[in-house]
Design a protein around this nucleic acid. Structure first.
Lengths: 222, 222
DNA sequence: ATTAAATATGGTCAAATGACCATGTTTTCG
DNA sequence: CGAAAACATGGTCATTTGACCATATTTAAT
């Protein structure tokens, strides 16, 4: 019997009807190519710098619903999502969850406050789907930022851009009706619509699942 | 008859029962001392650098309800609030306003997206109270950031910290009941409670004025 | 392939919320 | 100081929303 993935990323893999042995090394090479493409598209980083960044990162696989960060922990890594989909969420006193952010492939995820201050977080990050991420711990990443000014610039730009998104999302959350929120979501993230269970979309929009299905129902008859 | 403030900051001013003539210059000196104290408290900037920053800024007075930035305009300045209270808000299609942020004295205000991208904004900034602000236009401020690394660091820190606040506010807006939102506001900003009309607090919390007065009423009997 | 879990939707009903309007009070500004 | 505007609160009522429960369908895991 063929054993799959006895170690992370390592194992027999079915490809073109042949089982091939894949080492950690070739697996990482394969997984990180998307990240390299991403960096080339969004920065002016050179080959050597990209190689340096990639080799400093560690791959991690996440099962569906596996936690990347748990309430009470300190966020110790910057994380880039290579494949899959993660969600950031907080839990209220009564145990219900509110999703503050989704991070699909080719985006970053972090708990910024916990990461920068190295304090325990009130939020969690979990995989919605089986995912592959690339991670750098804080000191490692700060070294990269220091050694590679272009990465530093890019990183600042990401932080700034994230703030635009947060503000716009806050405004929508404050001012829009549930129906408008849903339509805005569909328009902004048509791809996520198909990948997320509705209760997570409801949680993200700050409305109940019931209200969401009502909206969807009423839209059928229009 | 004594004329008050014929030019900005300039004019006869009642002090210790005497009318004294105040020039633009002495007025600015007086107004900016709070900003200097703020900088000393939050940075390690030296006297010369602080002097450089202050002298590059321009004072502006705002009447109650006067707009600092209007929907459709480009945000061209970084603004520090010396005195008074400003609000950032967006307007929905039906004409109602939602307040995204309050900026009291000793804080900054800006429309980050419009400022950084120099694109027209969908949001506005207005004075809640008569206010005094200190402003730097973008090229001027970027020159300062470039020439004064400690200011650059501080600026980055502010942007990052703002993002924590936004995320926490988003979570509360998503997950809390109207009553919890109000209590959280009272706890976080007891001073603002006394300075803001209730309809603005309701707008900030994303609830109706009616709901807010109901909450306050029910809290009296407890 | 089969079983268990997750998901989407619906019904019902009580509670929460907002729209509209009125009124007494407070604040602002000339 | 006095007029006008802004403000805080209350009443009423229609609508929206969510809680709870049930069920059919889809998806996931072994």
């Amino acid at each position: 019997m063929i054993q799959h993935t006895p170690g992370f990323g390592t194992g027999w893999r079915l490809q073109d009807n042949l089982y091939i042995w894949q080492s950690r090394f070739t697996f990482k090479l394969q997984m990180t190519s998307g990240f390299e493409i991403y960096l080339r598209a969004h920065t002016s980083l050179g080959d050597a710098e990209i190689e340096q960044i990639v080799s400093a990162g560690k791959l991690r696989s996440l099962e569906r619903n596996e936690l990347l960060l748990q309430e009470g922990q300190v966020c110790r890594h910057k994380t880039f999502v290579i494949k899959g989909l993660l969600r950031n969420f907080g839990t209220t006193a009564d145990g219900s969850e509110s999703i503050t952010h989704f991070s699909p492939e080719n985006s970053w995820t972090i708990d910024a406050e916990s990461y920068h201050l190295q304090t325990p977080t009130q939020f969690s990050i979990a995989a919605v789907e089986r995912s592959e991420v690339l991670q750098w711990n804080k000191t490692e990443f700060e070294r990269l930022l220091h050694e590679i000014p272009a990465l530093n610039n890019f990183s600042q730009k990401l932080i700034t851009q994230a703030s635009y998104g947060n503000r716009n999302r806050l405004f929508t959350t404050l001012s829009a009706t549930p129906e408008e929120k849903y339509e805005s979501f569909v328009k902004s993230y048509p791809d996520l619509l198909a990948r997320l269970p509705l209760h997570m979309i409801a949680s993200y929009l700050g409305i109940s699942l019931k209200t969401l299905t009502r909206i969807r129902h009423s839209q059928l008859h229009r």
